[in-house]
């Protein structure tokens, strides 16, 4: 019988896949895509808690909506930053973005 724990474990696995993408990818757009996978995993947790755990009705879904709003803002600004840096450096490789490193 599929229950609450199965949803949480699915979300953990999804979060782990996103985390591996963030650590191992070099393309900045791919890293943003992995961050989106991680945010989706968190949203699955919110919806599962809203359904299965004793809590205020609908509060988990409300939090999921706010996470989606912040994710949309994050991806818009992130892609604009990548395009701006690409114009300067002609590259989207994260190893080339060491302007602020010393």
């Amino acid at each position: 019988m599929i229950g609450f724990t199965h949803y949480l474990i699915l979300s953990t696995v999804l979060f782990g896949i996103g985390m591996y993408g963030v650590i191992s990818k070099r393309n900045a757009v791919a890293v943003l895509m992995s961050v989106e996978i991680m945010l989706n995993a968190v949203n699955i947790n919110f919806i599962a808690i809203s359904k299965f755990i004793r809590s205020e009705t609908g509060i988990g879904q409300l939090f999921a909506i706010f996470v989606i709003v912040v994710a949309a803002a994050e991806v818009a600004v992130g892609l604009a930053l990548i395009i701006a840096i690409y114009r300067q450096k002609k590259s989207v490789n994260l190893n080339d973005f060491n302007l602020l490193k010393w």
């Binding site: 949803y7 757009v29 943003l32 895509m33 989106e36 989706n40 949203n43 919806i47 599962a48 809203s50 359904k51 879904q61 999921a64 909506i65 989606i68 994710a71 949309a72 991806v75 818009a76 892609l79 990548i82 395009i83 690409y86 989207v92």
Partner: peptide, 29 residues
């Protein structure tokens, strides 16, 4: 999980807007 509204928002925002934005950015860079 009986969260139909969030599912529709997910399809609209993620499946529609964010993926189109990402594919456009990929085409540009």
């Amino acid at each position: 999980m009986n969260a139909g509204f969030i599912g529709l928002v997910q399809i609209l925002v993620y499946g529609g807007a964010i993926s189109v934005l990402i594919i456009f950015a990929i085409m540009l860079v």
